[in-house]
Design a protein around this nucleic acid. Structure first.
Lengths: 338, 338
DNA sequence: TTGAAAGCGATACCAG
DNA sequence: CTGGTATCGCTTTCAA
C-alpha cells in the first residue's frame, strides 16, 4: 500500500528505520534482506523484517553498500557522442545484458570532447568502477589507464582501432574493411580506385585505416583518396569531376556516404556500376533499399555475451598483462552497384 | 611521474594517505582539494597537499563523498534498447552537456525489458539519483515513481508519448506528426490515404498516435492502416497489392520505412509521386539521398540546454505538482515524393 | 591556521 | 538465533 504522497521532508528510509519498525537490530535486517547466513534468523523474524522493509519502501543505498564492500559492480562504458548506427547500439545492449548476467552493472557514461585525457580518467575513477570500456570516440591515454588502475579499476579495455598502451585492446580492424573492398574491386578488374575520405575529423580514425586496407589489397592499382563532406553539394561536386579523374571503382567509406554519392552520380548521368562501381560498408538496410542495391562490406562485432565473459575473466585476473584481441570479421555482400 | 606499475595489492589512495604524506590532517586535505574556506589554509600547506595528492594519484571516492553529502548529483536517463537514430542521440548529448553545466552528472542507465516496473525503479533508486528521466521505451509505473520519490529522487520526468501519473511529462506529441502529414496530403487533393503501421511492437506507441493524427487531419477522407514488416519482402507484397487498394497517398511512418517502400514501388513500376504520393518522417539524410527525394515530417526536439534548465528547476522545487510539457514541433519539408 | 572527531548507510565480525 | 560495534572514505563543525 502506498500510503501518503511523498512529503518534502521525506528522507529515504534506512536499514535502521526498518530495524526499528521490525523491533530488531540493523545487523538482523542486513542478514534477512541479503539472504546471508542461511537459517541464522528465525522465520518469524524474517517475515517481520520483510514486512517492515516493504511498508517503508526501503531500498538499500548503493553508495553505502559499495563503500563498505570495497568495490562497486560498475562497468563504465564510454558513451560515444556521435552515432554509430544500429550495429553499435545492438552490440552495447547485448554486452550490457551479458555483464548483468555476471552481476555487473553496465552504465553508459558520457563525456564531452572538451575534457583532457586526464580529466576524463579522473571523472571515471571517482566512481571506482570495476572495469572501464573506453569507446571508439574517447581518448584514453596511458596516463589515464594508470590513474584508473591506481584507483582500483581491475580491467581497462579499449574498443578501438588501435591499441592504448597499458590497456587491453579489442582491436576493431578497420583496415580489413578496406582490404575486403579493395580485393573485390580488383577481382572485378578495376585498376583505378577512388576511396572516399570523410572530412569529419571524428571519422578519420576509421577512414584512414580503411584507406590503408584498400591500398594494401590493391597493390599495383592506382588508389586515389577523395575528400568528401557529408552534404549533397559536396557529392555533386565529386560527381562533376568524376569522369576527369579516370577512376572506375569507388570505395565509399560506408553505406551512408555511398548513398549520397550514388544519388549524385544518378543526377549527373553517371551509371552505376558501369561508369562507376560503388562499394559501401556496414551493410545497413540502406544498402538494400537503394537502386541499384549497394555492394557493402560488413563488420561483424563480437557477441556481447562472449565479450562479457572475457571482461569477467579480466576482472578476476587483474594482473593479466595487456593483450590485444582482434575482433570484427569483414565480409562482403555483393549486390548491384559493383 | 608514474612510478611503478600498479601492483595487485594497490589499494586506492585515500585522503588519509594524502594527509599522511603531506604531514597534515585529513580535514586540511579536504579544504585544500575542494577550495573550501578560502584563505583558511596557508599557501605553503596547500602546495604540499596538492603535491602529495598528485604524487599518489589521489582521486576522491564519489560514493563516500555523496554518502556524506546526502545527495548525488546523478541524473539517470533510461537507455533505450532500440535505436532512435541520430535525432535522439544528438538530443541526449546536448541534454547531458546542459546538465553538466548545472553540476549534474548524467548517465545512461540501461535495463533489459525483462524487469518489472517495480524492479526497474528499485534498481534506479539504489543509486539515489537526484533526478530520473525515463525514456521512451521503459515502463515507469506510478508505483515506480513513488519508490523513487521515497528514496529521495527529487524529480522524475518521463519523456514519452503519454504521461505517467505522478511524474512530470515531456509529452512528445506523435499525433502532430501524423496530422502534419495528413494535412499535406489532403491539401494536395488526396482523399484515400494509406498509413504504414510497423508490426514491430516497440514502435506501436509511436505509430498509433501518428495514425490517429492522420485520421484527425484527414477527416472526411478514407484512411487505411497498412501493416508492414521492416523487410524487403513485406514491402514488395504491399507494392503488389497497391493498385487494388485504391489509395493515392501514403504516410510511411518514417523515412526508413518510406525508403523501403519507395524501392519496392519502383521495382513494381509504381510511379512516385503520380501513382503514389509518399510522405516519410524524421527528415533524415536518407530523405535527401533517395530519388525522388522524400517529403518528410520533422519533429524538432527541445533544445537540450532548455530542458536541462527545466530539470534543474524541478530538482530545486521538488514539490512542483506533476505537469505536462508538450514538446516537439512537427514541420513538413516537401520534396519530390508527394 | 590546523586538528580531532562525529556521522552519512550498510555489512560482518565477534559476543552473548 | 540475535545484538553491539568497527569499518569503508569523506566532509564539516567545533576546539585548540
Amino acid at each position: 500500500m502506498w500510503s501518503a504522497m511523498s512529503e518534502t521532508t521525506s528522507t529515504a528510509p534506512t536499514s535502521a528505520d526498518v530495524a526499528r519498525l521490525a523491533g530488531v537490530s540493523r545487523a538482523t535486517v542486513s542478514y534477512v534482506l541479503n539472504d546471508t547466513a542461511g537459517g541464522r534468523v528465525s522465520e518469524k523474524t524474517r517475515l517481520r523484517v520483510r514486512a517492515a522493509a516493504d511498508q517503508l519502501g526501503y531500498v538499500p543505498h548503493a553508495a553505502a553498500r559499495s563503500l563498505r564492500a570495497g568495490h562497486t559492480g560498475l562497468v563504465l562504458m564510454a558513451a560515444p557522442e556521435i552515432t554509430f548506427g544500429p550495429l553499435f547500439n545492438e552490440f552495447f545492449a547485448e554486452l550490457r545484458a551479458g555483464l548483468r548476467d555476471h552481476g555487473y552493472t553496465a552504465v553508459l557514461y558520457g563525456t564531452r570532447g572538451d575534457l583532457s585525457g586526464r580529466e576524463i580518467a579522473r571523472a571515471w575513477a571517482e566512481l571506482r568502477p570495476t572495469a572501464v570500456i573506453t569507446g571508439v570516440t574517447d581518448d584514453l591515454t596511458p596516463e589515464g589507464v594508470e590513474i584508473l588502475r591506481r584507483s582500483g579499476t581491475r580491467a581497462v579495455l579499449s574498443l578501438a582501432e588501435r591499441p592504448v598502451p597499458g590497456a587491453h585492446s579489442l582491436l576493431l580492424d578497420q583496415s580489413a574493411v578496406g582490404a575486403t573492398a579493395g580485393e573485390h574491386l580488383v577481382a572485378r578488374g578495376h585498376r583505378a580506385i577512388g576511396v572516399v575520405m570523410p572530412t569529419d575529423a571524428t571519422l578519420r580514425r576509421f577512414s584512414e585505416p580503411r584507406l590503408a586496407g584498400v591500398r594494401q589489397a590493391a597493390a599495383g592499382a592506382r588508389v586515389e583518396p577523395l575528400a568528401l563532406d557529408y552534404t549533397e553539394s559536396s557529392a555533386a561536386e565529386l560527381a562533376a569531376r568524376w569522369r576527369s579523374l579516370g577512376l572506375t571503382g569507388l570505395f565509399c567509406y560506408n553505406d551512408e556516404y555511398a548513398a549520397l554519392i550514388q544519388a549524385a552520380f544518378q543526377d549527373a548521368g553517371i551509371a552505376v556500376p558501369t561508369d562507376a562501381a560503388l562499394v559501401g560498408a556496414d551493410d545497413l538496410m540502406l544498402a538494400r533499399v537503394l537502386r541499384p542495391r549497394l555492394t557493402s562490406v560488413h563488420v561483424s562485432l563480437p557477441e556481447g555475451i562472449a565479450l562479457a565473459d572475457l571482461i569477467d575473466r579480466l576482472i578476476r585476473e587483474p594482473d593479466t598483462p595487456p593483450e590485444t584481441y582482434r575482433i570484427g570479421d569483414a565480409t562482403i555482400t555483393v549486390r548491384d552497384s559493383s
